[in-house]
């Protein structure tokens, strides 16, 4: 058992960081709406009060681009995680409940997808995407649903075979009751943990794609893309690179800190 105090502060810090990133992603685009406007005369302008992070190599407002990129990462990743969790959960419960060939087929499919590390799936989809959001979204969601499927299926199988579910069935309760009272309370906390993990994975995958140049295409601001673009100008304007790095690292740190850090204690 870890004392509550030593567990609580990282989680509190996690929530604080996440709130800060969310605030920046939501309010930033309102405060600095113009992320596309180029002012080539003002390229690599140093930070000022009006432009806290200066301007980039094309004279665009860095903070506006950063806020817009953060918002894009968060909503796209969030959407992916929600879809993956929903799909994985439904199929997992279905597989555990039905058993038989439904289970065999779904498990075979999941095993196949599992042999393909998530990033590879996303990469193939990014080749189809041509910089578009929808295909990337499908790719990310398809890469992630298996984890939810496996967890939900394994837990549900155990639960459905447990005495308390048997007792409920003997008492005359139907599937709705069993899902609501027996499965959901057990699955929900695990799903939440997995979703915070999945969110980090999705945000990371998006920025990785952007960074290696096969994700969202310019001129849309995206964290990984901004880093690649800033790299050649690192010696003149380091904040160009460090700002997206900081936003990404803080977001990931927040999501890591949210989870219980001790795996077993």
């Amino acid at each position: 058992m870890t004392p509550l105090t030593s567990r609580a502060w990282p989680q509190r810090l996690g929530y604080l960081l996440l709130a800060a990133v969310l605030l920046f992603a939501l309010a930033g685009p309102l405060l600095w709406p113009d992320y596309a406007g180029q002012q080539l005369m003002r390229f690599l302008e140093t930070p000022s009060l009006a432009e806290p992070l200066g301007r980039d190599q094309l004279g665009r407002s860095v903070i506006a681009r950063l806020a817009s990129a953060a918002r894009l990462s968060l909503w796209l990743a969030g959407l992916c995680v929600l879809s993956a969790a929903l799909l994985g959960c439904l199929l997992g419960v279905l597989s555990a409940w039905r058993g038989g060939w439904t289970d065999t087929v779904l498990r075979g499919l999941a095993d196949g997808v599992l042999a393909l590390p998530g990033l590879l799936i996303v990469l193939i989809f990014s080749a189809m995407a041509q910089g578009g959001f929808l295909t990337l979204y499908i790719g990310l969601a398809l890469a992630q649903w298996v984890e939810y499927f496996r967890m939900t299926r394994a837990r549900s199988r155990l639960l459905l075979a447990s005495p308390h579910v048997e007792a409920s069935r003997l008492l005359g309760f139907g599937p709705a009751h069993i899902v609501r009272r027996h499965l959901w309370p057990e699955l929900a906390p695990m799903l939440l943990t997995m979703m915070s993990f999945g969110l980090a994975t999705a945000i990371l995958a998006l920025s990785t794609l952007g960074f290696v140049g096969v994700g969202i295409q310019p001129p849309t601001p995206e964290l990984g893309l901004m880093m690649t673009e800033a790299l050649p100008h690192y010696s003149e304007a380091p904040q160009l690179l460090l700002a997206p790095v900081a936003v990404l690292a803080l977001t990931l740190a927040a999501l890591v800190l949210l989870r219980p850090l001790e795996v077993n204690s």
Binding site: A200, L241, A249
Partner: peptide, 17 residues
């Protein structure tokens, strides 16, 4: 925790720099 928040390409970038 630090390494989780520092994905490979960021870590590589920092090492490179």
């Amino acid at each position: 925790v630090l390494l989780r928040a520092l994905p490979p390409f960021l870590l590589g970038l920092m090492l490179m720099l």
